[in-house]
Design a protein around this nucleic acid. Structure first.
Lengths: 128, 128
DNA sequence: CGTTGCCCTGACGTCGGCGTCAAGGCTTAC
DNA sequence: GTAAGCCTTGACGCCGACGTCAGGGCAACG
């Protein structure tokens, strides 16, 4: 299949596919007319990339998964390198979620105490 | 004081201050030689901006706080517009944290089930 | 008078993941 | 033959918050 069909079947754009190719992530064979040619396996690779991207993985982080599939494994996360990315991502997420919760709490307090609160009040309910 | 000193006292750079000025956030008076001149109030405004920025507020979102201080309030969040930003931020944070937790859970499951698990196993401990 | 150290404006670079346009080639249907 | 609809490469645009460089001015010290 050609680039337009692959893009459509993966729910993305031709621009995106050419970008992935430029990054060496999803190289394409070429037909006699110079057109890019893809097969069902490429679709599977592309869907793996897109799934991870949608979840919030950087493009580079999807590379181990793609290489894992290309190595013949039925799942992109069957390889150690992929699992390592999972673990790094878990740590990152935990750190980020923790920070965000801290910030959330800070704002919550500021929202509760800001706006002319009485100096001697101990604890109050929501004012709004 | 001049731009370099203000930057140093706020722990930022002159470039940042000029950028804020270009955005209309922190205008400066000018001395006879064309140099920007700031006072202690400007330092207070700048610290308000930086504090919010560090927490993750967009630059535009700090504007109500700055205007609130400039209006004479001792705290930047003493004004309704600032509180509205707080509330919007809380909602954004809640949504984002929720998404991240969902992703975290997904990855956790994939990490647990990936890597050649036996098809009939019910529940296993950590393998690494 | 020269050097150092501030300051000025203007403008291009950065990062990621593409969007969008330009200018042209191939193929197929009418 | 010609128009439509694919495809090609190349290159600039976008977003936010600045970093960094170029080229020049002012001030103070020795």
């Amino acid at each position: 299949m050609r680039i337009g069909e692959l893009a459509a079947r993966a729910g993305t754009t031709t621009r995106t596919l050419r970008y992935y190719e430029s990054r060496g992530l999803l190289p394409a064979r070429r037909g006699s007319n110079g057109y890019r040619t893809y097969d069902e396996d490429d679709l599977k690779l592309l869907r793996q990339i897109r799934t991870l991207q949608d979840i919030g993985f950087d493009l580079e982080e999807t590379r181990p998964f793609v290489e894992c599939l290309r190595a013949g494994h039925p799942e992109g996360d069957a390889c150690p390198a992929s699992l390592a990315v999972y673990r790094r991502k878990l740590d990152e997420l935990d750190a980020l979620i923790g920070e965000l919760q801290t910030v959330r709490a800070q704002i919550g307090v500021r929202l509760a105490t800001a706006g002319g609160e009485p100096p001697l009040c101990e604890l109050g309910g929501r004012e709004l």
